[in-house]
Design a protein around this nucleic acid. Structure first.
Length: 281
DNA sequence: ATGGCAGAAGCATTCTGA
């Protein structure tokens, strides 16, 4: 069962590429970021024609997230919710549409578009850190409820210097600072694992290449798009890959999709099928 | 040190992103 995340940098500009990619890869769930469109204008029909359900949380021009799934989502929630920790006024984060979550197969899928932050001196940087701290608290709430988690998206952080093509040039700067890495680690708290690093320990693997300066042609990228799963799900994880191919398209997104293969076939699905049989007797 | 490339809004150019 393939779960994918892709910052598409405008769902309308990238629509035919996304549909082509779905036809090739056949993901069970595809989480999109930077859809850049209000919900009323989202292109639902091409996805629904392929048999997918679509849940969106968008805004005009900026941000926007969506979950495209073969099965209907349960408990769809848009933005942060359910806080018992009053340190965060989640209302202050609701104007930027950066998080959507839904349950499938007994797992809570959380799709995020983490703020970029601009530069360490910027007001946007404080917003980024506050947003990440709020995400950490949100995950604390989920952990209290015993939820299994799959957290995916564009994190706008290279977790380590292995995730930057030129760490000497960029370390300490935006997307590569200790402040951001500490904030990300506070989200993960050891309870969530970076799926990509289960399979690949070396540098040289990127999910984002700047549009400028021939970054893709020169393979000067960053690994800032991630999939994290609860430790309890780690035995179900079969693979995690970055699919670089769409970055080579004409008029591409600057990000590539990241795909995990989760072996969930023998849990909830079988259970529910068995339950149906029982009640039909 | 700066700008470079791209999308949206909207019609020239600015804002934002990473």
């Amino acid at each position: 069962m393939l779960i994918a995340t892709w910052n598409v940098n405008s769902v309308r500009s990238r629509l035919s590429q996304i549909i082509d990619w779905i036809n090739q890869v056949d993901p069970e769930i595809l989480c999109l970021q930077e859809t850049k469109v209000i919900d009323d204008s989202f292109p639902f029909e091409p996805f629904e024609t392929l048999g997918y359900s679509v849940e969106v949380y968008g805004q005009k021009s900026y941000n926007g997230v969506a979950i495209i799934s073969k099965n209907k989502a349960e408990n769809i929630r848009k933005g942060f919710y359910g806080f018992t920790n009053t340190d965060f006024n989640i209302e202050t984060f609701q104007d930027q549409k950066r998080l959507i979550s839904a349950d499938f197969y007994g797992i809570k899928f959380i799709n995020v578009y983490v703020p970029n932050g601009s530069s360490l001196e910027s007001d946007k940087f404080m917003y980024k850190i506050n947003w990440l701290n709020c995400l950490a608290s949100f995950l604390d709430e989920q952990e209290k409820k015993g939820e299994l988690i799959c957290l995916v998206g564009d994190f706008n952080i290279a977790p380590s210097n292995l995730d930057i093509h030129d760490p000497k040039k960029y370390e300490g700067g935006i997307m590569a600072s200790d402040i951001e890495r500490n904030a990300l680690n506070n989200v993960l708290k050891g309870r969530l694992i970076d799926c990509f690093r289960i399979f690949e320990k070396n540098t040289g693997h990127w999910s984002w290449w700047d549009y400028r300066n021939k970054a893709y042609e020169l393979n000067k990228g960053w690994r800032i798009d991630h999939v994290y799963i609860s430790k309890a799900l780690s035995s179900k994880l079969k693979s995690c890959v970055i699919d670089c191919m769409p970055r080579g398209n004409l008029r591409p997104s600057d990000h590539a999709p990241v795909i995990i293969d989760l072996n969930l076939d023998e849990i909830n699905v079988d259970f529910f099928e068995g339950e149906d049989d029982f009640f039909e007797i």
